[in-house]
Design a protein around this nucleic acid. Structure first.
Lengths: 219, 219, 219, 219
DNA sequence: TATGAATGAGAATTCATTCAT
DNA sequence: CATGAATGAATTCTCATTCAT
């Protein structure tokens, strides 16, 4: 069906080699993610997407075999994007504190930059057919595992004081992801401040002092 | 237009005195909240709701003038319920720590007990017409203000170490509300454990030690 | 889905007991059979059927869950009709010659009276989904078996001179059914003449003399 | 409009001399006849035909100006083929019995060999535009006239006992053509047996004894 | 109070066809 | 000679809603 397993940031490079009409494909994705984030998947019509792109509704089907496939493409694309970038950007360290700090900044950065994609990937899981649901949830799980891995390592290393790495990962992800739902570009707080504030809160949350205590005191 | 201004917990009392056919009204609400939570508002049809209740679609319009009004009823009803119960149950103290502890327990209790209502009230804001949106958001704001009030008082009292009460309120609400999205009755953790785990995490998050340090050390 | 297993000729009687709107159901069948016979199933649109009935296209779906189900209804209905009437009208004899004579008259009578139904039942098998196809073909098979049963009995009784009852049944059915494709009411030949001509041809075809010879000469 | 007036059996000769790309034209015909026979004309799409040929849908329009023209081409081509071959192969005799025997063999041979073409030419008349319909029906009529001519001659010569040559021609054509609808290559009966069985049945049908009686007895 | 029939607008999707390249 | 992108109209089907009974 859709031969995109290559996340968007690769596609960007490939676009030059692609023929003229793959610009349309990307325009469709952009239009779709904007509309779906604003109105919801069910409330968004193929007509609206086509109108935004400036083509006829039927032309969408040259690029995506169905509305459902378009949604899957957006969700998988976003998660691939997230996972790929984290792989590329994560610091080359094993220190849980440094990793957690990097993860917080990474997550907030992408969840404010790509707010619409995040919204679609988080809110429209129930619009997926079972097979697609499993596929997307598996990718989400991999992302969650990054954080719970960090937290677990920190707990075992005695750096974090948390009773359950998995629950804590959910809680922190929910907290950080929530930012995207009220953050507006040019609002009271800039991205830098957001990251700082949330880094402080998460660091406290995991039981780490801003000026880390000697480890023995935590045990 | 919508013939309900009485929140659910009042309705519960009224139901005993209520006449024969208003049992149908409550059944509609139950069916609607279940279906909308599972499939989303746009994806839920009046026919499905009617079928679940065991009546014909047309009969729904005896109780709710439109599908949109039914949604508003559910959301307003839920928020009235939350606000009303907090008013009734909040501890009669000014101590921010005690209040926060109570709020955490209250929030998680209601967000696991009434998962479907919460889901509908949180996810379907965008399905509301502008006027209804404002009405519902105003109620949500009042609930958020409870938490940010507690946090602000705690900050001013030097009990919490947080740079921004409002952002912290959003963050903590997001964290606590997230529980409802993965909690399953009879899962690994019971409601009691959930509350304990999240109380610990939130308490750490706001900069309070589990065994609170003397206040002067926090300044 | 469609609760009609009762063939049309029963339905006619039942219509009085049915509610008002079952007149619509029958009108839809009539309109559909006429249009499908004239243009083919694929070339007939639900719009056209609805227009002929005088309702909106959507209203068709109160009576038939899909266009495909409507086709199945027509085909099964027709075959039930044929089989039911043959059961009711077949002469109470074992004589193959008398039975064949009755069958010819019966078949031509119904295939000129109900030309459109026959057309639909014969030409639109390929428009059926596999399960429906099997169901309809099984009914057709039962009708074919009536004729091949008669022919087989006649062959065994030494009255018919035919090398293969099954092939002969197909051949004779094709011959008799063909009448419906060119017969026009009020044409050169009336129904009576048609029956006479085809009775003669079939009787010759099965190897029977118009004035039957003593059986021993046939052996 | 349609750039083919040369029937297939001429085309076959021309194909050797024909240029490179007209192989594509024949491939289109083959693909089309297969698909249309299987699914019906309306249910067959230009995309399916193109896919089967291995070209893009737009390329079909280099060869056939429209879907309708493609159908006409197939039907006219088939009937030209039939008529041409009968002209070429018919025995050089005036004896109605010999001619009928030859016709039966000829018809069954071509209706089993070219089953798909026959199907398309017989079933898709109603998909034709009026002008094309008349053209195709005129050709069919010429083929029918061959048989009714033979039968009429046989009746006048006292060899056949039939009340109406035209009706008999329809009946026999229907019978013989029906073979194609159930015949499967490699089935219980081979082509030879089919011809024998049907020759016997038709001969009886026209009132001729397998071992022809002296003509005077028939008058 | 509820039903059952119907409406009318709009949904996703398909398809023959065109045309610049 | 063929492609790939696009069109525009039509198709099946759905759904909130109305209303006579």
């Amino acid at each position: 069906m859709i031969n995109r397993s290559i996340p968007c940031y690769h596609r960007a490079m490939a676009r030059t080699t692609g023929s003229e009409g793959s610009r349309t494909e990307e325009a469709i994705r952009q239009a779709a993610v904007g509309l779906i984030a604003a109105r919801g998947f069910e409330a968004t019509t193929m007509r609206q997407i086509a109108a935004q792109v400036g083509i006829q509704p039927g032309a969408l089907y040259r690029y995506f075999p169905s509305k459902a496939a378009l949604l899957v493409d957006l969700q998988v694309g976003h998660l691939d994007f997230l996972l790929g970038h984290w792989q590329a950007e994560r610091p080359a360290t094993d220190d849980p504190v440094a990793l957690l700090r990097a993860f917080i900044a990474f997550h907030i950065r992408f969840h404010t930059l790509r707010r619409k994609e995040v919204f679609v990937a988080n809110m429209e899981l129930r619009s997926l057919a079972p097979a697609d649901y499993r596929r997307v949830v598996a990718l989400r799980r991999r992302y969650e595992d990054i954080l719970s891995g960090i937290l677990g390592a920190g707990i075992r290393a005695g750096r974090f004081r948390l009773p359950d790495a998995r629950v804590a990962a959910f809680a922190i992800l929910a907290m950080l992801t929530g930012v995207g739902s009220w953050y507006r570009e040019g609002g009271r707080l800039g991205q830098r401040e957001l990251i700082d504030v949330h880094t402080l809160m998460v660091m406290q949350c995991v039981g780490l002092q801003p000026h880390p205590l000697p480890e023995e005191t935590l045990t």
